[in-house]
């Protein structure tokens, strides 16, 4: 199969085109790093959603609930480990964040399993009901969050070692953004390797292309799907935890806020495509930051505009998945 590199080129083109508009070298680098970090966080949250859609034609409008749960669990763990978070050692800080993130992934993964069983399973293949019932799940989950954590927002402070910025010449780069980029790239690499090099990845890719054929070869695509759904939910939890720490506040509405960006990203990328999701996420992150700097009032509108332009160019998204 011929590789299609054209969409990848969009990222450097976008970055280069915005350079003369931003004007100064140092703010351009800062904005680009911020954009990439934001894009990678969105990618983490969006990847599971796009895969479950590709594999089983299920679009989970309740995905935002996993993001919110991840953020809340992580916030609770970090508040409980206050001593480690406040310590002056980078390793203790990272350990606290690591534990918080693991807890967030575990809880949202478990929630994903329950969600799949109770909410999604009875409505396979019926899009209208899927949209309705997963939205219902989102309503219930958001209310449950308020029951457990109370209606108020939780304020988080980043640990000392991750506060502030690193200065490279006259370019300031926030440390937390570097961490977010590292985690995001690691997740992308792990996903890409799993999909490209392992047997499970082969089955998932085959399932996205043609599920019936995979089943007739004797593989249980249902079980595969549950696995992907749970991993996707856990990743949403991871993304939510990181997003909460990035914003330094966690509210029950966090899922609803981010899910809009997530949807834009998977539409841009082409529903079902992980590579497209990656490119789309970076484009959305960069656009949001450049436009946020140049014309703050239209920042969110800019993502809609980006989506409209890309859909005009490729109506099925950047990397359309074959069967659709």
């Amino acid at each position: 199969m011929k590789r299609d590199y054209l969409p990848l080129l969009l990222i450097p083109v976008l970055a280069a085109a915005s350079f003369p508009l931003v004007g100064s070298w140092s703010s351009w680098v800062t904005l680009s790093v911020a954009g990439l970090a934001m894009g990678l966080m969105i990618f983490i949250m969006a990847s599971g959603l796009t895969l479950t859609f590709g594999l089983m034609d299920v679009l989970n409008f309740g995905h935002g609930a996993f993001i919110a749960v991840g953020a809340f669990v992580a916030a609770s763990v970090m508040l409980a480990l206050g001593a480690w978070m406040g310590a002056d050692s980078l390793w203790l800080n990272l350990a606290a964040i690591g534990l918080a993130v693991l807890a967030a992934m575990a809880v949202s993964g478990a929630l994903g399993l329950a969600f799949e069983r109770v909410i999604v399973r009875p409505v396979y293949g019926q899009h209208l009901k899927q949209i309705l019932v997963t939205t219902g799940g989102l309503i219930v989950a958001e209310q449950l969050l308020k029951v457990v954590w109370g209606p108020d927002q939780i304020t988080l402070t980043r640990p000392a070692a991750l506060r502030g910025a690193i200065l490279l010449g006259d370019v300031a780069i926030e440390k937390y953004r570097l961490l977010a980029m590292a985690i995001g790239l690691a997740v992308f690499a792990a996903l890409a390797l799993t999909l490209a090099r392992t047997r499970i990845g082969l089955l998932i890719r085959a399932g996205v292309e043609n599920g019936e054929m995979v089943e007739s070869l004797g593989y249980r695509i249902r079980r595969l799907f549950v696995g992907v759904f749970v991993v996707g939910s856990a990743l949403a939890g991871l993304g939510g935890a990181m997003w909460g720490l990035y914003q330094e506040t966690v509210t029950a509405a966090i899922g609803a806020q981010v899910i809009v960006l997530v949807f834009i990203v998977i539409i841009i990328g082409g529903l079902g495509s992980v590579g497209g999701c990656f490119v789309g996420a970076l484009l959305v992150g960069l656009t949001a930051n450049y436009i946020g700097f140049l014309a703050p009032k239209v920042a969110l509108g800019s993502n809609i505009l980006l989506m409209a332009l890309i859909l005009l160019w490729r109506p099925q998204g950047l990397y359309p998945v074959a069967k659709r």
Partner: peptide
Amino acid sequence: RLRTIFFAMITLAVASA
């Protein structure tokens, strides 16, 4: 012209914007 699910997602994005 696209499927139900596209319309649902796009309207959500446009409405929040």
